[in-house]
Design a protein around this nucleic acid. Structure first.
Lengths: 343, 343
DNA sequence: CTGAAAGCGCTTACAG
DNA sequence: CTGAAAGCGCTTACAG
């Protein structure tokens, strides 16, 4: 490996002069002739600075570590794609590298601990919640990060009562899909949730219950199906529900992917969308418009979440801003999959 | 920041002892009592090693830099998602971090040069071709990487006559879609290519020409439409073709996304798939199965490309293997969008 | 069993 | 205008 020392020796000057020139070719601290010589040797030896050494000396690595307590392929989820795209758009513009740290461990606590173990030296961190993270675990993770003194931001988690950077989704009142269904005259609703017992599920089950009560409809836990975030699981769960003779006219799927499964089940059972059953998905994935009929979907501003998160981090990093929380609101994109029900 | 020095001072020993213990808690080079003390202080001060300093000292960073000469969001393309997933599966298992270097510059040469400028110090590189890279530029990039002496692998590019690690796609003879169409009785074919003048286009235009000649069909450059890798562009190009009164019974789209546009154009023009027009896409994207009818598609082993690429790199890194080339073959996944044509 | 020292490749005051 | 030196936080021979 060619070092600054090699260049200095060849030119017959000190390392400092080479470093100065490399940092700023217009510097006045290096003579004109010397500059020419340095440039020549740099070219000749194909010298490139060692970023690691520079990072150590400058106490700044220009890199941000991404912490995602999740085993398996990170980039297959459309959520990750969008949030990372948002992060990338901000960080690259500021000259930061994005570093994905290897995952190891059995639960979100040990995974993040291991990633931190591998990753100190980065200028900041983005800690991302996944469907498998409990809020409690993630709060512990956030506390541990706080103790390092390194700026960080938490994404994709419910609000935490900690003084940290966080971007949080909020469903505005009109995004209560159950309320919308009841208003449209629907009376038999089903929620296709993700992982059984997940925090996400419990939030929506709760909403489902309360809204049903408000409308004087009785609520039964059989109205909750578990799709496990998978289209085939969602399909068979719904198919079984239909075959059991239970009635349903409105379905809310917590991801668009599970809505694909719901479509398949409904078609296989010989019913029509939206004439017999209305369907709403969540995430407004790029493929919903090619489904037939196009799927109505709750759109979370995921790209914006990445942007805001990266901006909070950059704010703390560059302008020493205090940690704060940013709230983003979801919207409902209505398409052909929903119809009012004659009561 | 808490350093190894702080620990040593508090315990009253040398940095070396702390380092030794941290590296291997079972070491015999540190006394039992001392170990206990170190552990206590480490916990108390919430010490974590600085990976940058360690990388410099060990001359190994356990990180691989990803070089993609492409402006804009990297992770929105389904190609990137799959290839990165493959890369991740191998590199994480080996304990390597994956680093995306910020992009700057106007062409693939200057982008890669800039990324290298930012990225030396990583243990290896993965250089990925994009649709906008000329083979010539990428060969220059590869040569420049060679000169650094750092192991690297080139993905998503036609074979280069250089002694480097490279993973290359090969369409086996049966993946000549034009040949398949002719055999099925089709006589009026259209190719919807990507960017005008791109290398990818020219390869398939060439195949189209040769195959037509073989079957005694005249070839006309009007049979080539330019979809620019965009569904709307593809749609309007095909719609214009149909409206001009030209005949077509078989279409090959170089991406599935453009096939979505082709479907829309065909439906808007009042024709049916596959009764009137057959369509074949490329990449076998996850959404093709929900198109109606499901799209037949040429599947490239993109995930495998990532896996093989990472394996070549690891091979050179860990086992000092020589650079070599790996070939992967595409396959055709037939679905409802293709039908034989009565001649 | 443990310490003092050199070194990784840079940057940045400090001198002159 | 330029050089010698200290330092970033680690690891790794080398001594004892």
């Amino acid at each position: 490996m060619v070092t600054i020392q090699d260049i200095a020796k060849r030119v017959g000057i000190s390392k400092a002069a080479v470093s100065l020139y490399l940092k700023d070719p217009d510097t006045t601290r290096v003579g004109k002739d010397t500059k020419v010589k340095i440039a020549k040797i740099v070219e000749e030896l194909n010298y490139r600075p060692n970023v690691i050494a520079r990072s150590l000396a400058m106490q700044k690595s220009n890199s941000i570590g991404i912490l995602v307590p999740f085993e398996g392929p990170l980039f297959e989820s459309t959520f990750m794609q969008q949030v990372i795209s948002g992060i990338q758009s901000v960080l690259f513009a500021q000259g930061y590298s994005i570093v994905f740290l290897p995952v190891k461990g059995s639960d979100s606590r040990s995974m993040v601990r291991h990633q931190l173990e591998m990753g100190l030296g980065h200028d900041g961190f983005i800690l991302m919640g996944t469907r498998y993270c409990s809020t409690k675990d993630m709060e512990e993770n956030a506390k541990e990060l706080s103790r390092t003194g390194i700026p960080f931001v938490v994404l994709n988690m419910p609000e935490m009562k900690l003084d940290i950077n966080q971007v949080i989704y909020r469903d505005p009142p009109e995004i209560n899909i159950f309320e919308q269904y009841y208003r449209l005259g629907h009376r038999d609703l089903v929620l296709i949730g993700g992982r059984r017992g997940s925090l996400e599920n419990s939030i929506y089950i709760d909403q489902f219950k309360k809204t049903s009560k408000k409308w004087g409809k009785n609520f039964d836990s059989s109205f909750i199906l578990h799709g496990d975030y998978d289209k085939d699981v969602a399909k068979s769960a719904l198919l079984q529900y239909l075959k059991s003779g239970k009635k349903v006219t409105g379905i809310y799927c917590l991801t668009d992917t599970m809505a694909i499964g719901a479509y398949a089940a409904i078609q296989e059972f010989g019913l029509r969308i939206p004439e017999d059953i209305s369907v709403v998905g969540r995430n407004d994935s790029f493929f919903v418009s090619i489904m037939s009929p196009p799927l109505s979907s709750v759109k979370r501003p995921i790209f914006d979440e990445g942007v805001k998160g990266a901006e909070l981090l950059i704010g703390e990093l560059i302008r020493s801003e205090k940690p704060r929380k940013v709230f983003l609101e979801s919207t409902l994109v209505l398409r052909g999959s929903v119809q009012a029900q004659k009561v």
